[in-house]
Each structure stands twice: as structure tokens, then as C-alpha cells.
Amino acid sequence: MRRRLAFFGSPAWAVPVLRALSEAHDVALVVTQPDKPQGRGLKVASSAVAQAARELGLEVAKPRRLRRDQETAERLRVLDLDAAVVAAYGQIIPGALLEIPRYGFLNIHPSLLPKYRGAAPVNWALINGERETGVSIMRLDEGMDTGPIFVQEATPVGPDETAVELSERLRDRGVELLLDVLERLETARPRPQEGEPSYAPLLKKEDGRIRWHEPAQSIYDRHRGVQPWPGSWFEHSGQRVKLLEMKPARGEGAPGEVLDVGRVSVRVAAGEGAVELVTVQPEGKRPMAAAAWARGRRLGSGRRIAS
């Protein structure tokens, strides 16, 4: 059955959700974040969802503050919506809007709720070393990801999966589950969330700092979790160095101590085990092999990599 929907989303991650919905259902309105400066030139540009909506010939609204935007609320009221779908929109949906669609607002949340409520569930699942996560299709309420769940599916976390890769995999499976729920809206009965909640706030720049005192696996898990932003980094002699590619390794020594410099990589001791730095990018320079950077800084065995 084709449903009449509104879609709320903004980044590129949400575009495949919009495309799938537009193929299977009638998307009457797309609500996204306002245009803003982007890139090095800070040229004002539309969100990825707004651009995709234009390509699909869909109506778009870009309220600056949804809570205070009466025009968007009125547009939604006259559309006779079966449901609205939210995928990484970027603003809280006010309670007055949640009641407008016949079956409410549905959300794709890439975690096993109530674990990792908030803006960065995939990132924090990886940073915290989770070996299993999942995706939930929920009905929004006025809380922060506290609404009841229609369906939830668990999946193992790949040992080398980054936040980008895992979030896209969870999204793609979430789209399949969402389409199924939309088919059976009349009979679907969401259940309240059960268990102890945990939270996943937006990442800060400091979350990407390498903690050399942590075990090598924890350092690697954090590295995977802070992709693509803020990325992993450390400071050496007052200079910030981005760590673009790394992996756990064997070895022991004082945390942050260089164990050896190879042809391409550098092995550095962690709180437990070691990590192999493969590619780095010093401040203001191009990416380079970690070994080339270390030799340029005269870093050899026994030297501390972190200031």
C-alpha cells in the first residue's frame, strides 16, 4: 500500500532513505536544514537531502527553527499524511507536530535502543568497543529517542568496520525494516523500550585525541569510531598530527614510546600492546607514510611520540 508521507532529513546519510521512500510511497513534503556555508570556500549550499529532493521533483521546506515555524506546521496539517519519517534531520521535532500524521513520526535509529540514545550512536558504540549493535525503527515521542519500538535487529560489528561503514550498513538494513513497518501501519504495535539507557552525544574535537595509556585495541576502536570527524590525532612537539591509518600490533613499552620505525610504518607502545601508525598528516601538510614523518622528526626507538 502506498502511503502519503513527509520526510525529515539533512545529510548525505539520509539520501538513500529518501530515495527508497519516494520509490515505494508518495512523499508529499521534504523538510531539511536551511542552506549554510560549506567547504573551504564557505559557499552557501543546500543540504544533501534538499539537493536529492530537487532531483526527485519533491517539495522542500527549510525551516530555521522548526519549533517556531508555523508555516511548516500548517503545510503538514493540510497534507493528510499517513506518517512522517525522520532520518538524521538535525532538529528536535516539537510535540505539536508529532500528532499531525495519522500514524505519527517514524525514525531510523542505528542502535539497539535504549542503548546509545542521541546524535552519535554508531560512533560511541565503536569507541566503547561494542562487538554487537543494531538498528531500531521507533515512533518518536517528545523525549530523546525514548519512543516505543516497532522492530529492532541486532548485528555483529566487524573488527575493522569504521563508523562510516557501519552507519551505512545499519541505515541500509533500517530502510528495509522501515518499508516493512510502513506496509503494516494499521496493525503494527510498537513496544516500550526495555533496559538501561545509555547516551551518545555529539562528538567533540577532543574525542579524537589518542589516549596512549589505553590498550591498543581501545585506541583502535576509538580510531574507527571518530571517522570521518574529528578523526584520530596526537600532538608532537606542539604540532597536531592526524592519524589517518593505523592498526593494533604486538609489543610493549611505556605508553607513547616508539618501539621501531619500519620502511613505511611506526610501532608505538600503548597501555597494553602496541599500535602501528601507517599514514599520518602533520598540520598544514599532505598525508605521508608514518615512517617518513618519524624520520623527519628524528624519532627512533625509545623516543616518546607524544609531547
Score class of each variant (00 low, 15 high):
residue 1 M to W: 11
residue 6 A to P: 11
residue 7 F to Q: 07
residue 21 L to K: 13
residue 22 S to T: 09
residue 24 A to I: 03
residue 26 D to H: 14
residue 29 L to Q: 12
residue 32 T to C: 11
residue 43 K to Q: 14
residue 48 A to R: 03
residue 50 A to V: 02
residue 51 Q to N: 04
residue 52 A to K: 12
residue 52 A to W: 04
residue 55 E to F: 10
residue 59 E to F: 06
residue 60 V to I: 07
residue 62 K to N: 15
residue 64 R to P: 06
residue 65 R to S: 15
residue 66 L to P: 07
residue 66 L to R: 03
residue 69 D to C: 11
residue 71 E to V: 15
residue 73 A to H: 10
residue 84 A to N: 05
residue 85 V to D: 08
residue 87 A to S: 15
residue 88 A to C: 02
residue 92 I to R: 13
residue 94 P to H: 08
residue 99 E to S: 14
residue 104 G to W: 04
residue 111 S to V: 06
residue 113 L to S: 02
residue 115 K to L: 09
residue 117 R to H: 07
residue 124 W to V: 00
residue 130 E to D: 09
residue 132 E to K: 13
residue 133 T to E: 08
residue 141 D to Q: 07
residue 143 G to E: 06
residue 150 F to K: 11
residue 151 V to A: 04
residue 153 E to N: 10
residue 154 A to T: 13
residue 157 V to K: 13
residue 159 P to R: 14
residue 160 D to R: 15
residue 160 D to H: 15
residue 160 D to S: 15
residue 163 A to N: 07
residue 166 L to H: 13
residue 166 L to P: 04
residue 170 L to Q: 12
residue 171 R to S: 12
residue 172 D to W: 14
residue 174 G to I: 14
residue 175 V to P: 11
residue 182 L to S: 09
residue 183 E to L: 06
residue 184 R to Y: 12
residue 187 T to E: 13
residue 187 T to H: 12
residue 187 T to S: 11
residue 190 P to Y: 02
residue 196 E to N: 01
residue 196 E to A: 08
residue 201 P to I: 00
residue 202 L to F: 09
residue 203 L to K: 08
residue 203 L to T: 04
residue 205 K to Q: 12
residue 210 I to G: 00
residue 210 I to E: 02
residue 217 Q to N: 12
residue 218 S to L: 09
residue 220 Y to I: 08
residue 221 D to H: 13
residue 222 R to E: 10
residue 232 S to Y: 08
residue 232 S to L: 06
residue 233 W to C: 01
residue 234 F to H: 04
residue 239 Q to W: 04
residue 240 R to G: 01
residue 241 V to H: 01
residue 244 L to W: 07
residue 245 E to L: 04
residue 245 E to V: 08
residue 251 G to N: 07
residue 252 E to R: 15
residue 254 A to H: 10
residue 256 G to K: 06
residue 262 G to P: 01
residue 265 S to T: 04
residue 267 R to Q: 05
residue 267 R to W: 01
residue 268 V to R: 00
residue 275 V to G: 03
residue 277 L to P: 00
residue 281 Q to W: 03
residue 284 G to K: 12
residue 287 P to E: 02
residue 287 P to I: 00
residue 289 A to G: 05
residue 290 A to R: 03
residue 291 A to V: 00
residue 291 A to T: 00
residue 297 R to C: 00
residue 301 S to L: 01
residue 301 S to H: 04
residue 303 R to N: 08
residue 305 I to V: 14
